[in-house]
Design a protein around this nucleic acid. Structure first.
Lengths: 306, 306
DNA sequence: CGGATTGTCAGCTTTTAGCATACATTCTGT
DNA sequence: ACAGAATGTATGCTAAAAGCTGACAATCCG
């Protein structure tokens, strides 16, 4: 079987015809005229057809050469367009961005961000898949996964971009009807709503501003397996619970929830982005992650001011 | 300036996407999978975009990769079409064939041949330029020149494909009214029509069948600068003249002209084809030259039978 | 008529293509 | 559950190709 024609030679041939001489084509291409001469000669050898009629110091395309030149111009233009489109896609966010995130985090943090993202970048669309299971990025054709919690650093494509705090909260009515709460031990006997979405929902370690560390084990009469429902029960005065700040912000602002022992900190968790392994990051992904980082920073500042 | 993208890599990339794996693409292309892997990796490097999302043992194109793949398929198909068109032009005579020939030879020999050629090859057209001057093949964009006479063998692209004879002829009336003509000297005092299209129209060397060589210098009362007009004067009884067989055949057959001293031969000349220097001969040229050679052979046989 | 220009050729150096081999990771059959 | 098979990548090697320089032959122009 005949060896494939080297398509790079088309560009040399087109340059010669366009320039009207090997010498001018070489100048235009930035190589020596000997190379241009050789490349076109090899092209003629490969296609078994004379494309240029030459005499010393003069040349012109044959009839076959003129036909082929027209075809080559079209081919090279199409290649240039395709490469240009790739280059443009490297710099401008566009196309469909597929994101997976946990239910709760996705609903409260990612949804508002997605709205902002698509209104800012008109060429982008977003498909947000909320799932608490470990999504396979490549198999499920995802561009980006938001992971919340505690990840081992073994996955090179995972990147910690922010954090969330956890708070002990109760409703105003509930907290108003119990004795003063000054330290974690004061709370251990109070009604507690356990969040069974967590691996260990009852035992919590508090750290005071001055460094004092206390662990408390709550007793729960109520245990629920989804975090929003836990929050709703707390709002209804069913008891205290530990909830992430990305869920409680609205309730705290509205006065439906009250932080308990705010001087005592609970462990915070990380917010991670995970990408499929790839050599280059499409700008739609980079831009979205930048926006997420900025949003998380703004959230941190809001918390610190209060 | 960025180095140009190697267009040969497009074929590797398309093969991988089409095949669904590097391994199958390698099998299809007849090379090792390591090469396919490297070629696509280099393509991604050159375009600065991830085209394929890979995990171990699995891959799929990115969004940019899918777009680019569609473009590449189109480009490669167009290239294949263009190369196919060249290949077809290599085997089938088609297009415009531009021929230059001397006035006389062209009119009597080439015109009938051109008619046969274009009726046999429907895709061909012919442009016949009759000129007695030395035509520059490349400058005047000719595919083929027919040269008649005596060429030095220095031009490598000239090819002798046949010959013509020269005959001493007169009209029947003229020859009937003169004493018997047995040898060249008998003719030297007779009226002679000089052909000024020739370099030396008056001095001729005759060679007998038995090897005897005689030279004669004619005296001409009439000198004309075009061969057909010379022949017409001879036909009208103005005298004898030396004319090429490709002009006299019809007159001889019709009885308008009579050969004089047929046992004494005059110098013959060659029929040559001249091509512009080229690596490959388009089939339209090759086929036409083949037909010309065949026609000249047929002419030779006709002369020998008589 | 001589110098300038053009295209080609030959020899050389650098770069690339393609190979074989080894390795890490996943998948499948037993 | 495990071992072998399959896949894609990396590395080092060899051969081929790309590009350079210099020289040459043929034409053109001042």
């Amino acid at each position: 079987m005949q060896k494939a024609t080297n398509l790079n030679r088309l560009a040399y041939f087109v340059a010669v015809v366009d320039a009207g001489s090997f010498t001018r084509a070489a100048d235009y291409l930035g190589i020596t005229k000997a190379v241009v001469s050789q490349q076109v000669a090899r092209l003629e050898q490969e296609v078994g057809t004379t494309l240029l009629m030459r005499t010393t110091r003069r040349l012109q395309p044959t009839e076959a050469g003129r036909m082929f030149h027209a075809r080559c111009v079209s081919i090279l233009r199409e290649a240039e367009d395709a490469l240009g489109e790739l280059a443009q896609g490297r710099t401008e966010p566009k196309g469909l961005l597929r994101i997976t995130a946990p239910y709760d985090y996705g609903t409260s943090v990612i949804v508002p961000l997605v709205t902002t993202f698509t209104s800012r970048y008109k060429d982008c669309r977003v498909e947000l898949n909320l799932s608490d299971r470990m999504v396979d990025l490549v198999a499920d054709n995802m561009d980006l996964a938001i992971r919340v919690g505690w990840l081992a650093d073994s996955n090179l494509q995972a990147r910690r971009i922010g954090s969330f705090r956890q708070l002990l909260v109760g409703s105003p009515e509930f907290v108003g009807n119990v004795p003063a709460l000054n330290e974690p031990a004061d709370c251990s006997s109070l009604p507690f709503v356990a969040n069974n979405a967590l691996r260990e929902p009852l035992e919590w370690t508090f750290t005071h501003r001055d460094g004092d560390v206390r662990s408390v084990r709550f007793k729960a009469d109520i245990a629920i397996n989804t975090t929003p429902a836990v929050m709703e029960a707390v709002r209804q005065g069913a008891g205290l619970s530990v909830l992430p700040d990305f869920l409680t912000t609205a309730g705290l602002l509205a006065g439906d929830l009250i932080p308990v022992l705010p001087e005592w900190q609970l462990p915070s968790g990380g917010v991670y982005t995970v990408y499929p392994a790839a050599r280059f990051r499409p700008p739609k992904v980079s831009v979205f992650v930048d926006m997420l980082i900025a949003a998380l920073k703004a959230l941190s500042l809001t918390r610190e001011i209060r």
